[in-house]
């Protein structure tokens, strides 16, 4: 018999992709571990890099900023996205057009979103200051991206604008999987629209929202682009989040080893969060027994 036949052909099909991914991900990941425990000469330095980077003054601030920024984005993107998704599930004239328009923020490249919003936030010539002043919400121009207290909310606004369409799409897809007789049954039982939302829609989309939250979390940790180009982490590190800190350690201070140590910590924390989330949703799925 041909010896190749004894190897399960499944392995032959999946091997090339797995090999590439292992080379591009696993190997660098292992290298991160090595880098984080060594100094530029390659000597083993124990936990020095970790102590140095975790002890630095910027790290607690960056951690706080990260939680603030990622958490804020997730909360508002989920709320707005769910509302938009429920809206798009209803029938009204022009629904298709609205759905297409809502896709735009998600489709626009992050870098373009960043430059466009930076222009809109412009202190002197920005349309946002002009609009808010003309309807009387503010009485003088605000430095949205250069004021310590405003920079994070402003950046969250941009990220939410970019991300809520994705949430809306996922919610919509999930809602369209609801058997319409369920609504009819609820109507016969005397349900108002709010009851349908509360007792039919929300329970149905809950698992989708859970996985979307996980994705938003991961994307939040990957989302260097918008902050890096709009503020570079400033002013005075007020919008510095951990991924940008890593990036700066490595490519502005050229301290690869501290950067690696910080990445490793970030990776472990994130990994634990993801596993917990997956375990919880798995348990919930089991208990519902679907």
């Amino acid at each position: 018999m041909n010896p190749l036949r004894r190897i399960n052909p499944g392995y032959l099909f999946v091997f090339p992709a797995l090999f590439v991914l292992a080379a591009m991900i696993l190997y660098p990941l292992a290298d991160t571990v090595v880098l984080s425990f060594t100094d530029p000469s390659g000597a083993f330095v124990g936990t020095d890099n970790f102590r140095s980077v975790l002890g630095s003054r910027t790290t607690p601030l960056a951690t706080y900023n990260t939680i603030y920024y990622v958490g804020g984005t997730i909360i508002f993107a989920i709320i707005l996205g769910t509302i938009a998704g429920i809206l798009l599930d209803r029938q009204f004239f022009g629904r298709g057009a609205v759905r297409s328009i809502l896709l735009i923020p998600w489709v626009v490249p992050s870098i373009v979103a960043a430059t466009t919003w930076a222009w809109m936030f412009h202190y002197e010539f920005g349309i946002i200051n002009y609009l808010l002043m003309s309807i009387g919400i503010i009485d003088k121009p605000m430095g949205w991206l250069i004021t310590a207290d405003l920079v994070k909310p402003s950046l969250i606004a941009v990220d939410v604008w970019k991300m809520f369409p994705f949430v809306a799409l996922m919610v919509l897809a999930s809602l369209q999987g609801i058997d319409s007789t369920l609504y009819e049954a609820a109507k016969v039982d005397g349900a108002k629209f709010w009851h349908e939302v509360r007792y039919i829609m929300l329970p149905h989309i809950a698992p989708v929202l859970a996985s979307v939250t996980l994705l938003l979390l991961i994307w939040g940790f990957n989302g260097i682009t918008i902050i890096y180009t709009m503020t570079g982490g400033g002013p005075a590190n007020r919008s510095l989040i951990l991924p940008i800190q890593i990036f700066k350690e490595a490519f502005e201070h050229f301290d690869f080893h501290r950067a690696a140590a910080l990445s490793l910590v970030l990776f472990v924390v994130l990994f634990v969060v993801i596993l917990t989330q997956l375990a919880i949703s798995q348990k919930r799925r089991d208990s519902v027994d679907r």
Binding site: I25, P28, L29, A250, A259
Partner: peptide, 20 residues
């Protein structure tokens, strides 16, 4: 593991990737 690899933050591998 393929799915999980997608969850990996870019920041964690960018340094060694640069070295490689």
């Amino acid at each position: 593991s393929i799915l999980i690899s997608q969850l990996l933050p870019t920041a964690t591998i960018i340094v060694p990737l640069y070295v490689i």
